[in-house]
C-alpha cells in the first residue's frame, strides 16, 4: 500500500461518526439564518424611520424652537426634506450593497475561490464607493441646514472665527473620517482579492 493510500485510509477511518441532524432541526437552523437577516434589516429600517420622523417633523411643523427666528422656515423645511431624501436613498443602497452572499444559494454554483472572491469584491465595492451612497446623499441637506443659518444669523458677527470654522467643518470632518476609514478597509480587501487572483493565475 502506497503512503498516500495509507494516509487516506487512516484519515477516512478517523473520528467517530455521529447521527445526522433531523430535517426539522435543519429547517429551524435555516429559519434562524433568515431571522438574523430580517432582524438586521429591521434595525436598519428602524434607525432610518427615526431619522425620517425627526426631519419629517421639521418639514411639517417647521423649525425647532431654538432655531434663530431670522432663518426662514422654508430653508429649514427644504434642508430637512433633502436629508430625508438622502436617508431613503442611503437605506436603499445599504440594503442593496451590504447583503452577504448566501452559501446555500451561491456556494454550490461557485468554486471556493470564485465564491470567496465574489464576496470580497462585493464588500470592497460597497465600502470603496461609500462616498457616493453614504456621504454624498446627505451633503445637500446638511449644507442647507448648516450653511444657511450661518449666512443668515445676526449672531454670526458675534461668533469668534474659530467657532464659525468649527461649526462649518465638523460635519465634513466626520464625513472625511468615514471616507478614509472605508478606503483603508477597501485597500485591505483588495489585497485579499489580489491574493486570490494570484492563486487563480498559478
Amino acid at each position: 500500500m502506497s503512503p498516500e493510500d495509507e494516509a487516506r485510509r487512516s484519515w477516512q477511518s478517523s473520528g467517530s461518526a455521529s447521527a445526522l441532524p433531523p430535517l426539522e432541526e435543519l429547517r429551524t437552523r435555516a429559519d434562524t439564518f433568515r431571522r438574523k437577516i430580517q432582524r438586521r434589516n429591521l434595525i436598519e429600517y428602524l434607525a432610518g424611520v427615526l431619522v425620517l420622523l425627526g426631519f419629517g417633523w421639521m418639514v411639517i411643523v417647521g423649525p425647532l424652537p431654538w432655531t434663530p427666528a431670522v432663518i426662514p422656515a422654508a430653508i429649514i423645511r427644504l434642508g430637512s426634506a433633502l436629508v430625508m431624501i438622502g436617508t431613503v436613498f442611503t437605506l436603499w443602497q445599504l440594503h442593496r450593497r451590504t447583503a452577504p452572499l448566501d452559501p446555500p444559494v451561491d456556494g454550490g454554483r461557485n468554486s471556493v475561490l470564485d465564491y470567496q472572491r465574489a464576496e470580497l469584491v462585493r464588500q470592497r465595492d460597497a465600502i470603496d464607493s461609500v462616498f457616493y451612497w453614504y456621504i454624498l446623499p446627505f451633503v445637500p441637506g446638511l449644507a442647507v441646514l448648516l450653511l444657511a443659518p450661518l449666512a443668515l444669523s445676526p449672531q454670526i458677527g458675534e461668533l469668534s472665527w474659530f467657532k464659525v470654522v468649527l461649526k462649518v467643518s465638523l460635519a465634513p470632518l466626520v464625513f472625511a473620517a468615514v471616507w478614509w476609514l472605508n478606503k483603508l478597509g477597501a485597500r485591505k480587501l483588495q489585497a485579499m482579492i489580489d491574493e486570490i487572483d494570484a492563486l487563480r493565475r498559478e
Partner: peptide, 18 residues
Amino acid sequence: VQDIHAALWRSFAYFEQQ
C-alpha cells in the same frame, strides 16, 4: 457540522445538476 448540513439541505432547492 450543523451549519454545513443546514446549508446543504437549503442548497438542494438550487441544485440543477450544474
